[in-house]
Design a protein around this nucleic acid. Structure first.
Lengths: 222, 222
DNA sequence: TACTGTGAAACGGTTCACAGCC
DNA sequence: GGCTGTGAACCGTTTCACAGTA
């Protein structure tokens, strides 16, 4: 019943640690699984154990946003799913564009996890004229020159960039001037964007390098 | 001249902050770009500015591993590229497997960024028998039942999991018992693995949720 | 009893500021 | 003058421990 201690627009994303927000995503994923498997409530220690966090961490994270738990009981799964969706804003239903219809772009277009959680991919963009006019997984592929138009028409707020590194900065700028508010960048370059546009970067090579470091430098002890 | 203050196996990955290691990857990416564009040296403040970090952060990060800079000069790009590769262990040349040849698996198999940096994808695995025996981007696709054999034969140390969530835990366990030391997991589940196996998780829905949060909760002020 | 919510303590990472060096 | 390397101060996050509640 809206037990949150603030209205949506009274919270400032800037005073919530980034780490808290990414754990929130994991809580949500796990809560849904629990809910699907018929579990009505979960305690902070159970939820923490499932994800490798402490119970105190789970409670502190959630306490940033309100009072969602029930002393002696724990958290009701359905209730907390709804609360976390509200915090993350996935209950708002975003329209999303994918730019670049190579292998990675196609993977994004076909990914099932998005639609079930408030993200509707409503357009794809590509320079390769042989792909323009086709549709991939039910999503129309437009030429890049139509980007601004389509972003307006379809009211697209978020975008994922899956183009070669050399094209990513230009694409990002086009997206921003068309009015896109948030970008997930899969191209291996650092984008520079105006303040006010949210950016998350995912670099596949970087992920493997993290593993390389861990494996190369782990001590034989333990 | 091996100016590093330690031999490779004397460093323990556990006493280097995770955040440092992921910035190292970004330094490497940027240093290569600078090197390619003909720049011989770079200062900590230049490198920091390009990536959005402070100069002190860049120096502190590198100081974890040795003395790579030249007072009055900065860092020589080529030299530092070699040093960072040594730290990350990408100079060791890893053999990598991809499990799951759906859209995402195919994207990983076709990704150019890996081969140029010490990661050789040498095998793919799939349950779908119509894909087994084919090859994708020059990489042979094997049935999952051959996983242990092929991992041994091809001396595979690292793997990327791109299978549905429901299959990921079982696949991970098979990889680990076959001797794989590090895993990048793209399936949207939390894997539980024995200590000693390195794990990085990438969840595409989670990345979009971070953006959703930032866009939904940013204050109108500023 | 079982659990949440939360101040206070502990920890760890980042920034500062400067000594040392080219 | 320009730049690195680094101890010390600072700041934010995590953990602890317990008061409060059903």
């Amino acid at each position: 019943m809206g037990s949150s201690k603030r209205k949506r627009d009274q919270l400032d994303a800037r005073d919530v640690p980034k780490a808290v927000v990414s754990r929130l995503s994991l809580y949500l994923r796990e809560l849904r699984r629990l809910s699907r498997s018929g579990k009505a409530t979960v305690s902070s220690s159970q939820l923490g154990r499932l994800l490798g966090f402490t119970d105190a961490q789970v409670r502190k994270d959630l306490a940033h946003f309100g009072h969602f738990g029930h002393p002696g009981i724990g958290y009701r799964c359905d209730e907390l799913v709804a609360a976390v969706r509200g915090i993350l804003g996935t209950d708002l239903g975003w329209n999303v564009a994918v730019v670049g219809v190579g292998d990675l772009g196609r993977a994004l277009l076909g990914y099932q996890g998005f639609s079930s959680d408030g993200f509707r991919i409503v357009a794809a963009f590509e320079t390769d004229q042989t792909k323009v006019g086709t549709s991939v997984d039910g999503v129309a592929v437009y030429g890049l020159e139509r980007l601004a138009n389509v972003v307006h028409e379809r009211q697209i707020q978020l975008a994922m960039i899956a183009v070669p590194a050399s094209a990513a900065q230009v694409v990002a700028e086009q997206l921003v001037s068309a009015g896109v508010l948030g970008i997930v960048n899969f191209a291996p370059v650092t984008l520079s964007l105006p303040d006010g546009v949210s950016l998350v970067a995912v670099d596949l090579a970087t992920e493997l390098e993290q593993i390389s470091f861990a494996v190369a430098n782990r001590n034989s002890s333990r």
